[in-house]
Structure formats: structure tokens, C-alpha cells
Design a binder for these strands. Structure first.
Lengths: 201, 201
DNA sequence: AGATTCCTTTAACAAATGTTAAAAAGCAAT
DNA sequence: ATTGCTTTTTAACATTTGTTAAAGGAATCT
């Protein structure tokens, strides 16, 4: 039987870009330097809307410090479907892979320090450097594993189980994110989440 | 607002391996030949269990002809979480990416003709041929898009909506797959699916 | 054809979740 | 401390979905 084991996030300490890149896949010095040459650091305040839905995004970001959420609208209410924090990647996959508008709005839940990378520069490197091509392959594969885990969790676990797993694996999420967003992420109403919280006490 | 648009499957006609490979990403002749040299065709009868959960799988398959399902157990009951048919890839991502046991049992719902590929041979090619490395990147990226679409559909659409989308986009699924599996895939009971079907008539 | 098996629908009731509204608790600013 | 504002919990009720069981259809086999 499958039990949900989400990817462990980093803690809430700043992550260096070398660490983020090489934890995806080891890279020779020269390739790493080429990649880092395309990356710059940017800072934004809390509540900043970094990515907009229905647009083609040409940048990806790695989170050095801070926490963000992705949301979209269903009828008139917002649904949060992803949280990202230190060490994770902010990316519109539809844009990145298919050059099509994505569904994610990305809002910063704290003031954030980000590493910014132009995807056209990355694409160019993919076709010049086999190490970077394989790094890009590993990057997609790992994002795929994470997405698959989220999907499986949704299909196999109850909201209560997924909430418990969330608490266990992301111990600081409750301190950093309002419950309403978490309820929406779990696919239940905030009232329902309150009931779950009342039961497990 | 996001509306569910699943990937279009092929129809139920046999697919050639060249077509499957190049629809993932174009490949120069030489690279394509190298890849195809690692692939052989295999046939299995209906109900054959192709992949077993909790094992590390060292092969991936492309479906030439037929339809399959992936399932896992939750407590004692089986949950179907994926269907694959002509042109699609049968793969345990956990095995492929992380060399860890996967959660999928793959059962053939019809007699199937498959193309089989040893993943260790593929890995070797990734490090020798930049075109194959980029093909592998594209492969992971496209599987990622499909998985993301399934996840988003689950978070944003009701079972009734997802059933309607399934009918629209996979018109022959009902003729090839028992309703119980479809209900499980939608995350509802078969009784519930029957109610949905009764309503839309 | 008849019998067996499997698949699908229907019904009645139980359990879980959503909805709406109000109360309580926490936070920030003066 | 008091005032406002936001977040979280609680309650009552409506709706949806699950559970169990039975019946109706469809397909397969001898």
C-alpha cells in the first residue's frame, strides 16, 4: 500500500545557487560556471505577484530565501495548488516546456530573495553542452517525481492524512502560511480543515 | 479560470516506434538509429501483469497496440490511477529517475504489442549523445506536463467534469475499460459514477 | 438455448463534506 | 488598553458521496 512521503523541503535558511543547482544534478565546474553566468539575484516584497496566469513566462526562479504560493481561479474563488520555499524552483511548466500560457499565479507570501534565469539562455546551453542537457533532464525528472507524488497523495490519501504529512514534513509551514491557503491546497474548505485540526488535538 | 484539457491520446491503431520517438522530440537519423537499436518488440496477453509495485523496474515500454492500466492498493482495495494506450509510455518513474521501487502495478487490459527498452542502455546513450540527452529531457518534460494536467484536473474539477472531459477526449475508453476502473481513476465509487451517468442522460 | 459469471444500475441509509453565519481568538496600530 | 482588522473555530443545516445490498443487463461458455 502506498503511503504519502512528500519531498522534504529545505529549512528556512538562505540557499546558495551552487547548492541549488548541484543538488538537482552534479555539474562539472565549467558547465556550472556557464549556467551561473546566466543567473542574477533579484529581491521582491511580500505580496508581489511574480508570475501571472495566462501569460508565457520566459524566466524561471530558484528560491534563495522566502516562501511563495501558486494559485489559480475556479469560478470566482482562488485555489492554492503549490507552495515553494528555499531551494525550490518557481516555474510555469506550460511556458517552459510548450511555450504556452501557464495556469499559475505566483504570489510571494514573504519578502523573497530569488535567483532569476532566462529560459532562452538555458535552452541555448542545452544544445551546446551535454552536461547541461543532462542537468536539464534531471531537473525535469525531479520535478516530475514531485508532481507525481502530489498526484498520488491526492488520489490515495484523505485530506486528514495529507494534512498530517504536511505538518510532519513541513514543520514551519503553519507559521508562514495562513490556514485558508493550506485548506485550499488540501482540496477542502477551511471549515473542514478546522474540523480536522479539532479532531487530532 | 482553468479548464481541464487532457492530453489527446492516439486512436486505437498500431503506432510505429519511429513515430512514437519522434513525436516526443525530433531526432537526427544517427541518434534515432542508436536508440532503436536498443528497442525490441514484445507481445503479452490480456491480464498480464507487466510491472509490479515495490520492485525496481529496469525497462520501459512504449505501447504499439493495446490499452493498460496502472493501479496500487489502498488498504485492501485497488485504485486505478492511470490509463495508457497506443503511443504512450509505460514507466515506473520512481525506478527510472531514482532507482527506487515504484508504486505502480501495470496490467494489460487487452492483448498488447509493446516496444521494450532497457533503461541502462538508455542512460548510457544520455551521456554519449547530446541529441539523445535532449530527447530524454523532452521526454521527461512531456511526462511532467501530462502529470501536472492530471493533478490540476483533480484539484480544479469535479468528478463529473473530469468524467465528461474523459468521454470527450478518449471516446473509445468506455468501450475498452470497465466502468469500475474509470470510477476509481476519477476518485469516486462506481455507484457514484453510475449516478453521474444517470444525471447527464 | 440455458447457465454462469461479470458488469452496471438502483435504492435506502449512513457518513462525510460543503455552506452560511456567528462567535472567538489573534494581531497590529494608536 | 482599546479599537479595528484578520484569521480561526464552532454550530446548524443542506448537499454530496460512500456503503451495502439487491436487481437488472450483458457477455461468455458449454
Amino acid at each position: 500500500m502506498y503511503t504519502y512521503q512528500p519531498h522534504t523541503f529545505g529549512n528556512n535558511k538562505p540557499m546558495q545557487i551552487q547548492q541549488i543547482l548541484t543538488q538537482i544534478h552534479p555539474l562539472p565546474e565549467a558547465s556550472q560556471a556557464q549556467l551561473i553566468a546566466c543567473i542574477s539575484e533579484v529581491h521582491f516584497p511580500k505580496k508581489h505577484l511574480l508570475l501571472k496566469a495566462d501569460t508565457i513566462e520566459r524566466k524561471i526562479y530558484f528560491i534563495k530565501k522566502g516562501i511563495v504560493r501558486a494559485y489559480a481561479y475556479q469560478n470566482d474563488n482562488e485555489i492554492t495548488f503549490w507552495f515553494g520555499k528555499e531551494g525550490e524552483t518557481i516555474i510555469s511548466m506550460k511556458s517552459y516546456v510548450m511555450n504556452q500560457p501557464g495556469y499559475e499565479n505566483i504570489e510571494l507570501l514573504e519578502a523573497c530573495e530569488l535567483y532569476e534565469l532566462q529560459t532562452d539562455k538555458l535552452q541555448a546551453l542545452f544544445h551546446k553542452d551535454i552536461n547541461i542537457a543532462n542537468w536539464g533532464r534531471k531537473f525535469a525528472e525531479q520535478e516530475l517525481i514531485k508532481t507525481e507524488e502530489r498526484l498520488i497523495a491526492r488520489q490515495f490519501s484523505t485530506a486528514a492524512e495529507r494534512y498530517a504529512a504536511l505538518l510532519k514534513n513541513y514543520p514551519d509551514l503553519l507559521q508562514r502560511v495562513p490556514l485558508g491557503y493550506i485548506a485550499s491546497y488540501l482540496g477542502i474548505t477551511q471549515v473542514s480543515l478546522s474540523r480536522i485540526r479539532a479532531e487530532i488535538k
